[in-house]
Simulated assay, not measured.
Amino acid sequence: MAARKHSGRKIRLLKKTRQNSAVPAWIILKTKRKVRSNPQRRQWRKTDVEVG
């Protein structure tokens, strides 16, 4: 990927990176394991990110 990205694209990529994280352990404990997985989880090779 190009090193020079416009700031809007960079912000959108950062948001997608944050969304791709796992559910924190304290939330799993708090919800008594009802919430265990992140449905927005994405594998970088398999799904494309439409950020422009």
Rank of each mutant, 00 (worst) to 15 (best):
R18N: 03
T17A: 09
K5H: 08
R4L: 12
R12W: 06
R33W: 04
K5Q: 08
R9A: 08
L14F: 14
S21D: 05
T17C: 02
R41T: 09
G52L: 15
S7T: 09
G52P: 02
Q40L: 15
K30N: 09
R42C: 12
W26F: 11
S37W: 08
K10M: 06
H6D: 00
Q19L: 12
D48G: 12
G52M: 12
W44I: 13
K30S: 05
S7R: 06
H6G: 01
A25T: 01
A22V: 05
T47P: 07
Q40P: 00
R45E: 12
A22W: 03
V51A: 09
R18P: 01
L13E: 02
V51T: 06
S37I: 11
R18M: 03
S21Q: 09
R33S: 10
Q19F: 06
K5C: 05
T31C: 01
V35Y: 08
A2R: 01
V35D: 04
S37E: 11
V49D: 02
K10Q: 08
A25K: 13
D48E: 14
G52A: 14
Q19P: 00
A2E: 00
G52N: 12
I11P: 00
R4N: 04
S21H: 07
M1V: 11
S37K: 11
V35P: 02
R36S: 09
N20D: 15
N38V: 06
D48K: 15
E50L: 14
K32G: 01
R42T: 05
V23F: 01
R33N: 07
T47Y: 13
R45D: 12
R9N: 11
K10R: 11
L13F: 03
K10V: 04
P24F: 06
R41G: 11
A2I: 01
T47D: 15
T17G: 06
S37T: 13
R33I: 02
Q43K: 12
K30W: 05
K34I: 11
D48F: 14
P24L: 11
K32D: 04
L13W: 00
R42S: 13
M1W: 07
R12K: 10
I28H: 08
Q43V: 14
R45P: 07
S21C: 11
N20G: 04
Q40V: 04
I11T: 07
G52W: 07
G8Y: 05
